[in-house]
């Protein structure tokens, strides 16, 4: 099975010779598959998504490695071509629905943007498609919502709008960057189910970034566990959630809240595990020279 997205030896750092944020990250996602990216805050999960979409913050850059999307190395493409490819085939579901919509623009336009301006659809067709998508994400009055400004609808509804916008252009890959973190628990489950349904229906590959092992267990066939920008464990979910996981993955699973067994959950990661990981990261850094 050829991968839709394959990342090989990706190194991302702050400035030249500055601290590394991603350390030799390799992973692959097949078409239509869901791959989970888990790790603690600051482990570099979101950074991978930003590197793929080419929207790394200023001063942070890919130093080495390849990001192969459908056989093309995104890091080697000229800027304009890359922007176009990403615009047409990759979409992001952002973390915080409250800040990810432009407060000064109506919702409809923010969904149809990509269709009209990147894919060149005419406005009427794009609007019809947006209404259809809003209907798919279970928004009852699509027409009214499209005319509304972001502050006029709830947080959960805004996240649905962003999901609709992400699926609008039928992308091959969607990067979901902790799409439920900013939502309250009851809405989280609906949104997750929604993403899962849409993904299955549209055959989209999903790179699912989260710190919640519970979510990964439900959604992902395979996953990568990150620590300090380094992949410390990777493989099918069945193995990682199986009887003999990596010590860090086991610790993360133990740190996940369990409402049914509260006394066994929310365990801090053991210091021995952290020490072993830190030694591993330090060893990787010794061998690495900033090209």
């Amino acid at each position: 099975m050829s991968a839709l997205l394959r990342i090989e030896g990706l190194n991302v750092s702050v400035g030249r010779g500055g601290p590394r944020l991603l350390r030799d990250v390799s992973l692959s996602v097949a078409a239509g598959e869901t791959h989970g990216l888990v790790g603690e805050s600051g482990a570099g999960k979101s950074m991978i998504g930003k590197a793929i979409a080419g929207v790394l913050p200023r001063g942070i850059a890919v130093r080495s490695g390849r990001i192969l999307f459908d056989g093309q190395d995104l890091t080697a493409l000229p800027r304009r071509a890359r922007r176009r490819l990403v615009g047409e085939r990759i979409a992001i579901i952002p973390q915080d629905p409250l800040t990810a919509l432009n407060p000064c623009r109506r919702i409809g336009g923010q969904i149809t943007d990509r269709l009209v301006h990147i894919l060149g659809w005419d406005a009427g067709r794009a609007r019809a498609r947006a209404a259809e998508l809003l209907d798919e994400v279970a928004i009852r009055e699509p027409g009214r919502v499209m005319q509304a400004y972001p502050h006029e609808v709830s947080g959960g509804m805004r996240q649905r709008v962003l999901i609709a916008a992400a699926f609008a252009a039928e992308p091959a890959l969607i990067i979901a960057d902790e799409p439920t973190t900013a939502l309250d628990v009851t809405v989280q489950r609906q949104v997750l189910r929604l993403i899962g349904e849409l993904q299955a229906r549209h055959g989209t590959a999903l790179l699912f970034v989260t710190h919640d092992m519970g979510v990964v267990a439900k959604l992902c066939r395979s996953l990568s566990v990150l620590y300090a920008g380094k992949v410390v464990d990777q493989g099918p979910a069945a193995r990682i959630f199986g009887p003999d996981p990596h010590p860090y993955a086991r610790a993360l699973i133990a740190a996940t809240p369990r409402y049914d067994r509260p006394e066994e959950s929310l365990m801090p990661v053991p210091e021995a595990v952290i020490a072993a990981l830190d030694a591993e990261v330090a060893a990787a850094d010794r061998d690495w020279t900033d090209g």
Binding site: K50, A53, G54, V55, P57, R80, R83, R84, V86, G87, E88, I90, A91, I92, P94, Q95, D96, T99, A100, L101, N102, R105, Q110, D113, R114, H117, I118
Partner: peptide, 23 residues
């Protein structure tokens, strides 16, 4: 230009100038 919706617009495939004027 650092806000989330601007970053999202960049990821939609807009050029920097288009992002600036539109968003």
């Amino acid at each position: 230009m650092h806000l989330d919706y601007v970053t999202l617009a960049r990821a939609k495939g807009y050029s920097e100038i288009a992002v600036l004027f539109r968003e």
